[in-house]
Amino acid sequence: MSVKYIPVQWNRSKWFYDAVMLAGVLLFLAIFLFAAPGLVGHERPISAQIHNARAFGACAFVMLSIILCIGPLARLDDRFLPMLYNRRHFGVMTVFVALTHVSFILNWYFTFSPNPSEIENLLRANTSYSQIGGFPFETFGIIALICLLILAATSHDFWLKFLTPPVWKRLHYLAYLAYAALVGHVVLGILQDQRNHALTVLFLGLAFLVVALHLVVWLRERAEADAKGGAWTHVSSTKDLREGFAKIALLPTGDRVAIFLHEGKVSAISNACAHQNGPLGEGRIVDCLVTCPWHGFQYDVRTGRSPAPFTERIPTYNLRLRGDLIEVHTDPNPPGTPVDPLTLPEGAA
């Protein structure tokens, strides 16, 4: 089955989502840029470029804070799940706001110099890396920007399939690096200068909200996992097993596991053969090796490895006994990991 890629997918929910987020961003910028200058009573206005840069920079900070809050909120209350649904559009919007901030900064602070390269000026102007006050906080901004660019640029569904979900997910942990770097950028930058502490409260309030939500969810989920004794799930009674054959069980993760009884001992391997995902659990043990019913590929049931000289490997699973119930850990071991078989008590099977 396949579906041709299209550039951007939209539906009614996504239109609504994007409209709400865009409305919020535009309201932030409109108030900061056009309403606030008339209310502050400065003798002369802040330079337009600096004012613009601050508006877009502050907006990007608020946006990334919200993005990072969505994940833990959705885990605390599943009614927030729709916010997760189209988060990547909001993320891409954040990158455009951040890039606008960067362009105002580069075209003001790092231009008009005898050296025409703005990027080079950015890197050479302040080199006080060995101090905290006066540290080139732009560095943190550059780190955050690179992370956000990678996240936005790899947000298309193609990347998820191409990189595989685990690699894509790990790559997108960069969001955490981006946010930490952004906090550094703000704390060592504008918060060193700003005399009015309302801005400090706003920025740090958001940052600590993000930290608190993540820690609360992390602690809660860890407590739940402990209560369940990890991710063990019961798959079979000892009485249901037959020597040389397997029982196939569907795990909550969606994976199928084959539990074999061999010489009075129980082992569990993935049900899918490495060759063409044939159902190993419908095969049987021949010469001490599980043999796939489709093409005869063989695996040692204790290690998930094909006998030499073959190199195929499949995942193994950990087992434990609770009374006469056999439980399997839902996380598979890396393919080819040896596991000690579970010895059944006398007369169990």
Binding site: V20, M21, A23, G24, V25, L27, F28, L29, A30, I31, F32, L33, A35, A36, P37, L39, V40, H42, E43, R44, P45, I46, S47, I50, H51, R54, A55, A58, C59, V62, I66, D193, Q194, R195, N196, A198, L199, L202
Partner: peptide
């Protein structure tokens, strides 16, 4: 969310120091 964005823009905007 929209109101929060507006409020944040207001707070950040009107607390800018005199340059």
């Amino acid at each position: 969310l929209i109101a929060g964005f507006g409020a944040a823009g207001y707070v950040a905007g009107v607390t800018q120091d005199d340059p």
